[in-house]
């Protein structure tokens, strides 16, 4: 495999809910906390914290905190695009863009996630490709679980470590 082929990955998951419901869970702080994060803080370009249910906008910055980890583990990034109904994009690990697109296939909503511009140097290539794709696989499954069955698969105990659920 050429190194370029490790520079991005695509994941798709099918969810039996309409695109509006799925988009809401990607594009509000409260929505993200239902399936992904312990605490999501979004700030507008002037630095004002957005209300938990107000839609995230392009140009917002974020701080994300995880279940099972203290506040010292924080991911900071920027919202690159939020079109209001089917595309949501943001910077993630190493400032790589992640683009989430929603569309319908066979009567179900497909969530397509593409993380691109991953580093392709020999030392860190696999770490980013494998680490990030594996992480997203779990959280996309949890998104499906929350929306279809209501079961939250995440580990929320700080004392429980080394599990794929956090």
């Amino acid at each position: 495999m050429e190194n370029d082929q490790w520079s991005q990955f695509k994941l798709r998951v099918n969810i039996q809910k309409d695109t509006d419901a799925v988009y809401h869970l990607w594009s509000t702080a409260n929505g993200l906390e239902r399936w992904f994060l312990r605490n999501a803080i979004f700030k507008d370009p002037d630095g004002n914290v957005r209300d938990g249910d107000s839609p995230i906008q392009q140009g917002d910055t974020y701080e994300w905190y995880w279940h099972g980890y203290p506040d010292s583990v924080v991911e900071k990034g920027k919202v690159l695009k939020a079109d209001g109904y089917k595309v949501f994009s943001f910077t993630f690990s190493m400032d790589c863009p992640v683009t989430v697109s929603l569309y319908t296939e066979a009567g179900e909503t497909i969530v397509e996630l593409i993380e691109s511009d991953l580093p392709t140097d020999e030392t860190t290539m696999l770490k980013h490709y494998v680490g990030d794709s594996r992480g997203w696989i779990f959280y996309l499954i949890n998104l499906k679980s929350i929306l279809e069955g209501g079961v939250d698969l995440r580990n929320k105990k700080v004392e429980l470590i080394d599990v794929i659920t956090s």
Partner: peptide
């Protein structure tokens, strides 16, 4: 660890 985003989380700690 086998935790989700474990490498990313380690990098966040090192970064802080």
């Amino acid at each position: 660890s086998c935790a989700s985003f474990h490498a990313l989380k380690a990098d966040m700690i090192v970064r802080s």
